[in-house]
């Protein structure tokens, strides 16, 4: 039985979801611990999330 490529893309998207979720969660923790560094943390969070998101989109468009 052949597994369709879209299943692989789905797996990638699950991974991306977990990754971005972890980034968001960790950023929340960090902001709670150091509210004065909120701006820096948000910037770093957005960049990391965007980089991971790119992989997800690449997987979706490769199908």
């Amino acid at each position: 039985m052949e597994i369709p490529a879209i299943v692989g893309a789905g797996l990638v998207v699950i991974g991306v979801g977990i990754g971005i979720g972890r980034i968001g969660g960790s950023a929340m923790d960090a902001i709670a611990r150091q509210p004065e560094a909120t701006n820096k943390i948000q910037t770093a969070m957005l960049i990391a999330a965007a980089l991971i998101e790119g992989i997800g989109f690449a997987a979706l468009f490769a199908v």
């Binding site: 965007a50 980089l51 998101e53 790119g54 992989i55 989109f57 690449a58 979706l60 468009f61």
Partner: peptide
Amino acid sequence: PFALLIRLYAN
């Protein structure tokens, strides 16, 4: 740059 173009387009 490839990730850059795909990200904007796909979003």
